[in-house]
Simulated scan of single mutants.
Amino acid sequence: MNDQVKDAPPHAVARLRATCIALSPTRPRLDRGEPRQQRCAACRLPPSHCACALRASVPTRAGVCLVMSEFESLKPSNTGWLVADVVPDTFAFAWSRTAVDPALLALLADPQWQPVVVFPGEFAAPERVVTELPSDPTRRPLFILLDGTWAEARKAFRKSPYLDHLPVLGLQPEQLSRYQLRRSWHEHHFCTAEVAALCLALAGDAHAAQLLEAWLDVFSDRYLRARQSVAPDPEDSTHRRLHSLASVSRQTTTSP
């Protein structure tokens, strides 16, 4: 394992997962197969397909706030975890219909951030919908992503009154989703990491967007190969692209 990954403190989604496990001893089984697979605690892949040595992060102007459905952080295929791998300023909170984490309210009220809810505009009042980020150079964009199944995300959007005063960013991506780890009824439904990458690009964090896309591709490739008992190919084009982008990230973070 990459020593930097091994020694790094757990990110926001990892901490939320640990809390969920501690509070939910009767949580549902979310790993597929029999028997349950052993998984790396840092990347959630089987040890034979561990990708920790390939992980990289990059500073960004934008932040990401993940509001996650009850058991989403426990799913090995969750891609909000990948966002937190790449974007240092990622925050994660469990969604509840009856309560809201005070830390989430404090984050939304923090004057350094300009929060915007990322959700299809047709589900919001027209006056809330924006197609561009609010223009305020003194505040950093904070993208609020509702992380869960489509039904869970719609429920969270409807029943979170503390989000009702915020603008809603309706993305209009031209490409179809490449995510293959879970089925969706609609090809235009993007996974959380894909949405986050689109948001980062919109905020001017182009390199972080590309790095997140490449990390998602490698994670998906290794996840599916592990499921099929096929060894990963670290020399294929997917891995080479991630390696190239990660090298640029490391040069950026170490340069004076």
Rank of each mutant, 00 (worst) to 15 (best):
L142F: 04
T252S: 14
S96C: 11
R139M: 04
A22K: 12
L30C: 08
A42T: 14
A193G: 04
A106H: 11
A156D: 04
E174R: 14
S73R: 03
F219T: 06
P115L: 01
H49R: 05
V64C: 11
A124E: 06
V87C: 12
Q228T: 08
A53H: 05
N2T: 13
A197I: 01
R17M: 06
A62D: 11
S24C: 07
V118K: 04
G33D: 04
H165P: 06
L211G: 00
L198R: 04
H165C: 13
V117M: 03
A109H: 07
H189F: 10
A209G: 03
F157K: 10
G148C: 12
L142G: 02
R154C: 15
V116M: 01
E70K: 15
Q172E: 14
R97E: 13
E122C: 07
R183G: 08
H186G: 07
F219N: 04
D221C: 00
R158G: 07
F91M: 01
F190R: 05
C199D: 00
R128C: 10
V168E: 01
S247Y: 14
S249T: 09
Q37L: 11
C52T: 00
L181M: 08
A56E: 07
P120W: 00
E174L: 11
L216S: 11
L224N: 00
R139V: 02
V117R: 06
E122M: 15
G63W: 04
Q114T: 09
V116G: 04
F71W: 08
G33T: 01
H243V: 09
V230S: 00
A124G: 14
R250G: 08
E235T: 07
V87D: 10
H243N: 15
D221L: 05
R154T: 10
